[in-house]
Design a protein around this nucleic acid. Structure first.
Lengths: 343, 343
DNA sequence: TAAAAATAGGGAAGCGCTTCCCTATCAGCT
DNA sequence: AGCTGATAGGGAAGCGCTTCCCTATTTTTA
């Protein structure tokens, strides 16, 4: 690999000048610049990021830390949407994206801690949802610029971004109520999932309250966002007396699990049971019938988070309140008025 | 951030000694070592990868270059499996994984070319499937250690790895033939997809040949691996005379597209039409009926590719023949003997 | 017991860049 | 003609490590 010295020699200038050309500093004559550029081309020169990083103290790498089990991550299409947004944005800024699937911060040698410690990144985006996440702490200590996708509680909701989960649940439930449903079951995500679940539960309750209803504790079950967990979590709801005429699941995959279980009970959707999901992943269009769901802007979430990070990096421009992106109710085939209205 | 000097000063030794401790070089007394380690702990020292990279000429980063449209990539669960395998392996080796979704090498400033030029990676894994891929060339020029997942044709199949596509198609079709199907349609992937498609087509033909059959050109249509394309590609097959009693689709997503279209024609699966997919992604279990498919070991593919790369990096141990991983026929609910055997 | 070998540690150059600071030239003024 | 300020370019230190090579001490071996 050619170095800056090789280029300098070939162009008959000093390395300083080459460096100036490299960074487009003024006070280099056009001819000299041209000569240097030519030498670079001839030698197929490319500056070493390591060297540059060392002297500039910038690495042009931003890290993406996802404290999930990779098995989980990659089966979550919604997270993938987020990554897509992040990748697009880092790429646009000519930054590199370092991926770390940090299996819970437990092991000290996890990629996760490796990343935070080697000073290899200029900034980091974390997707935080679980509470008591150790990840955050290390980054905080290192003072690494960071934005988190999710609900950041402490020290403050600084530089965080999330979708309007509250509103999403509110709209979903309200829609069901408007259709005439009064007995509504909820398949929640794991309670350990901080923020989003609380918000959605809050939104659901608020919606019910409009109609003078409250969330009955036997009308709520919990899954872990996988299809199977939705399948299992459907059980208590489908056997409850009275059986809910509608179920609101906190993601599409669980909703499709519910769908499958309901079918085994010979319930037809949406005639016997209405179903609303969350996220609006491709799967929701695939199942029969397609799912009414709450669209979350995953791609934008990733993109905006990354933009924010660059704003912090470039202009030290933190945002003190969380950025909240709107969600949207997408009405498809899994919802209808109840066949035997309960009221 | 503490540097090696800080540690050296605090432990009252030279940086050389600290460095020795860092790399576990012998000839450091136990006490000294302990003192150094303590100093590191106290200062929360972590070596700078940039500096280390500069002097060692190793960056501890390996790149993953996927010359696909990210939209496509992230909707392909099979590719994600591969990534999962890669990530697990790099992580195990304490390496960082740089992700580049290189939108076709077209634009000169693509992440892709940036990555190959900045000397930021010790090696690279490429997922190559499209022909005429410019990606490869640059890496070749830079002599960057690399292994490719897919079919590498030139200069040779050196350091490449792929699943046994030929065998997969062979087994799938043979299974259908054994069930009694004689009119078999094929929904192929895009012809531009190098290697895998050819292989599968070859395997299909060989299977048919066993029964004295040949692949009729109106029994093959092409999709681009998306569900929609499977839906569209099903059309000509389902309206052909005679209509095939079985369809072999080259991935599960297209198979589920076919499924949907067939249903619109009021064909019941598998009674009226048998369906075999490829990949064995989670989706294949989800559709009704679940898909008989060819399991490809995506995770292992990624893992083995990465292992190979480390072998090259550490011991300069290239493999001259492609590594071929076995596939497996998974029989589920979408296949049955034809209801009106054609022969 | 003397020499050789193993052990322990340090000095300093060098990895490939950037950047601070300096010098030289030249145009435009007064 | 002499000065100022813009323009053009270079010298060299320094970023934080690793490593080559050297010295000093201790242990082993003949």
């Amino acid at each position: 690999m050619a170095t800056i010295y090789d280029v300098a020699r070939r162009a008959n200038v000093s390395t300083t000048t080459v460096s100036k050309v490299l960074s487009n500093t003024p006070y280099v004559s056009t001819q000299t610049k041209e000569r240097v550029l030519e030498a670079m081309r001839d030698l197929k020169y490319a500056p070493s990021l390591a060297a540059r990083g060392l002297s500039r103290n910038r690495t042009y790498v931003i890290g993406l830390v996802i404290p999930y089990d990779p098995d989980y991550l990659f089966s979550d299409p919604f997270l993938l949407e987020i990554i897509r947004g992040i990748e697009a944005c880092t790429n646009e800024h000519d930054y590199n994206l370092l991926l770390s699937l940090a299996r819970r911060a437990a092991e000290p040698r996890s990629a996760y801690s490796r990343m935070s410690r080697t000073g290899y990144m200029d900034g980091v985006i974390t997707i935080e949802t679980f509470e008591g996440d150790e990840a955050a702490k290390e980054f905080e200590e290192r003072q690494l610029p960071r934005v988190s996708i999710g609900y950041r509680k402490e020290p403050r909701a600084i530089n965080s971004i999330h979708a309007d989960d509250y509103r999403g649940a509110f709209e979903g439930i309200t829609y069901l109520l408007k259709l005439g449903h009064r007995q509504i079951g909820i398949v929640s995500g794991p309670p350990a999932f901080i923020g989003a679940i609380e918000e959605r539960l809050g939104g659901a309750q608020a919606a019910l309250a409009q109609y003078g209803l409250r969330l009955d504790s036997n009308m709520i079950t919990y899954g872990d966002f996988t299809i199977e967990s939705g399948y299992r979590a459907a059980e208590p709801l489908l056997t409850a007396q009275p059986r809910p005429t509608a179920i609101f699941a906190m993601n599409d995959r669980m909703a499709s699990g519910v769908l499958r279980r309901a079918r085994e009970y010979n319930l037809s959707i949406p005639a016997d049971l209405s179903l609303v999901g969350f996220d609006d992943v491709p799967l929701s269009m695939l199942v029969e019938p397609s799912l009414t769901t709450i669209h979350q802007p995953g791609y934008e979430l990733g993109q905006r988070a990354t933009q924010k990070l660059f704003e912090i990096l470039d202009h030290d421009l933190p945002s003190f309140d969380p950025i909240v992106l709107p969600v949207e109710l997408i009405i498809r085939g899994s919802t209808a008025p109840p066949s035997h209205p309960s009221s």
